[in-house]
Simulated scan of single mutants.
Amino acid sequence: MNIQRPLLLAAALSSVLLAACAAPSTSADKGADMSKPKVDATIKNDAAPAARINLRGFTWNLDSAVDAAGKPIALLQREGKYGLKLSFVGDNLGVSGGCNHVGAGFKLDGDRLDISDFRTTLMACQDQRLMQMDTAISEQLKGKASYAIEGEPPSPRLLLTTASGAKLTLSGEPTAETRYGSAGTTMFLEVDSQLRKCSHPLIPNHQCLWVRERAYDANGVALKPSDEWHFLYQDIEGYQHEAGIRNVVRVKKFDVKNPPADASSVAYVLDMVVESESVPAPNAK
């Protein structure tokens, strides 16, 4: 059975939702000096002087959510746990962790967020609660919200108070752009359905990803694939290989500053999976 994800849909949505995929990776402001974070909010912390932090430099994981009366918002939980992630990329807010990838435009005004109506991909999930989460988070976040950031990198907390009075608490995780100090380079890789034995000086019988680079035109139509398959001797951050599934992934490639002698000078971080296909095992009848 083939599992296909429409490439054109993914390409069309990528400019709007960006961080929604996945994966979990967001982009820092283009041309920003990462050593001097952009001022987005004042950290409120009685134990330390006021500091500044880049809202866009983190992925924000939902830890708790209560309504205006202080009651937990059950629709934002799955099996009693919160799993939604917010990312702020350019002028777009992306939400992932439910059924679909959800996004909206936003504007900052001091400690205020003005969030426009949400857009969403149109996938259906067997778990109806995931689809309910998409609707619930969209309804909670749209409109005007206030926010504050507490703590310091690498583990700040984002406190959101929505237009309805709901209070969301989220923990920050530095984006790849923040960790590697650059915007990175976007590229597409086709990942074969099977790992292959490759040489590794420290790991006997090591298995590597077998990949080749892919390219697409301005309309998202795939160009002829490269015939140059090669080993990828390192992992793609955020990517989980599944035997028998061929994927085309969009990744960010970063230069690693001062890597250890036995480590790569580049890093690959998953941005989104744009195409998947189930492939029979080579010896399958």
Rank of each mutant, 00 (worst) to 15 (best):
M1K: 00
M1D: 06
M1N: 06
L8H: 09
L13C: 08
V16A: 13
L17G: 08
L17P: 06
A20Q: 02
A22V: 06
G31Q: 04
M34R: 11
K38D: 06
A41D: 05
I43V: 11
D46W: 15
P49G: 15
A50W: 12
A51R: 13
R52L: 00
R56G: 07
T59N: 00
T59G: 11
N61L: 07
N61Y: 01
L62E: 09
P72W: 07
P72A: 03
I73H: 05
L75H: 02
Q77H: 13
R78L: 13
L84K: 09
L86Q: 09
G90H: 06
D91L: 14
L93F: 05
V95N: 04
V102W: 03
V102D: 01
G103A: 01
G105E: 01
L108F: 12
I115T: 10
D117P: 02
D117W: 11
F118Q: 04
L122E: 14
D127S: 12
D127G: 13
D127I: 08
D134N: 00
Q140A: 14
L141D: 08
A145C: 12
S146W: 10
Y147P: 02
L159N: 04
T161I: 12
T161G: 01
T161P: 07
T161W: 01
A166W: 05
K167R: 11
L170P: 00
T175F: 00
E177P: 05
Y180H: 10
D192E: 00
S193I: 06
Q194I: 08
K197W: 05
K197A: 15
L202M: 15
P204G: 08
C208W: 09
V211H: 06
A215C: 05
Y216R: 00
G220E: 04
A222L: 09
K224C: 03
L232S: 01
Q234T: 14
D235C: 13
G244D: 01
G244Y: 00
R250I: 00
V256D: 08
P259C: 11
P260R: 15
A267E: 04
M272E: 06
V273G: 11
P282G: 11
